[in-house]
């Protein structure tokens, strides 16, 4: 075994996936995940998250590029990789007529080094529902059953495809807590989500996917820092943009006026906010509905989506 395995548990280089109809869902992405790290793939529906994860899980062969999980090709060397990974698919996939316990027992028989089923069900808080048929479970309970099965083999690498979709707020927090505990115990977790809050709370690092490419990557703080902060306020009647101090001097990099509402974007939030407030104070202007906020992951995400949409529009005009 090479030492690489301990550094990069997952390594993806120039990965491509093309479906039968010729649709290119993943268009050359690269990233790596270290041991004990929680890595989130973020993106809108159709961004290529699930297509990417399925390649990492070894469910399909990439059209191009390279995937290494624990130092091996998860598709060609599945015998070595599968016993060390756990998978939670986006949608369950349990016979509806089996009980929770029967489902877990079946799966335990197919997993190397399985923990007792009851222990896995207890981990996700399904211990009391063991005798219930799967068809009678709520959507959230089904997600938790799926998570329990993914954990049964005490995997070193855990793939979670939208693990909290359909969970209520409490269930979501419980899952986050569980993922953190697993991470602290050394499990490497790769998850996909379209909840920005989830990625911000849980991920050590993340990548934002857009149309099969990585639009931004890094720690949540890094991805956020690349985006400008935002100041929004309403100018009272009789006051206009021209009355404000020169925007350049305030450090504003972008602005938008919508009726009386003004939106400023800045990379120097403190300077811009100070100048604006000092001016308003001196001029005796009341800035109504004033909102000053640092860039959030949401901002970053929307910014990326907007840029992409604008790029697409430009392309359309050009054509």
């Amino acid at each position: 075994m090479n030492t690489n395995e301990h550094e990069h548990v997952i390594e993806v280089t120039d990965l491509r996936r093309v479906y039968g109809g010729g649709f290119e869902a993943v268009r050359g992405i690269s990233f790596s995940v270290d041991r004990g790290e929680v890595f989130a793939l973020l993106g809108t529906n159709g961004a290529g998250k699930t297509s990417t994860v399925e390649l990492l899980e070894g469910l399909a062969r990439p059209a191009g590029g390279n995937v290494r999980v624990l130092g091996h090709d998860p598709y060609a060397e599945r015998d070595v990789v599968r016993p060390r990974t756990g998978v939670m698919l986006q949608e369950g996939g349990f016979p509806s007529e089996l009980t929770v316990a029967e489902t877990a027992r079946m799966w335990a028989g197919c997993v190397s080094g399985a923990m007792p089923e009851a222990e896995a069900l207890e981990l996700v808080g399904l211990g009391r529902r063991a005798k219930v048929r799967v068809k009678q479970l709520s959507g959230g309970e089904r997600r938790r059953l799926d998570l329990a099965l993914a954990l049964l083999g005490r995997p070193e690498v855990l793939f979670l495809d939208e693990p909290t979709t359909g969970l209520d707020a409490e269930g979501r927090r419980d899952t986050w807590e569980l993922v953190r505990e697993l991470r602290d115990a050394g499990t490497t977790v790769l998850l996909t989500t379209h909840y920005l809050e989830e990625a911000e709370n849980l991920a050590d690092r993340l990548a934002i996917l857009h149309e099969g490419r990585i639009a931004a990557a890094g720690t949540p703080a890094e991805v956020t820092a690349a985006q400008p902060s935002r100041i929004t306020f309403e100018l009272p009647d009789g006051w206009f943009m021209g009355d404000l101090p020169p925007l350049d001097a305030m450090g504003v990099c972008e602005h938008e006026v919508d009726g009386r509402v003004v939106r400023l974007r800045t990379r120097e939030l403190q300077r811009t906010a100070t100048r604006l407030l000092v001016w308003a104070d001196a001029a005796g202007v009341e800035l109504r509905r004033l909102d000053v906020r640092s860039a959030s992951l949401e901002e970053a995400f929307l910014g990326i989506a907007r840029e992409a949409a604008e790029a697409a529009e430009t392309k359309e005009y050009a054509a």
């Binding site: 016993p83 698919l89 369950g92 996939g93 349990f94 197919c110 997993v111």
Partner: peptide, 8 residues
């Protein structure tokens, strides 16, 4: 079937 294929 899809679920089963993710395992060993």
């Amino acid at each position: 079937l899809k679920r089963l294929r993710t395992g060993e």
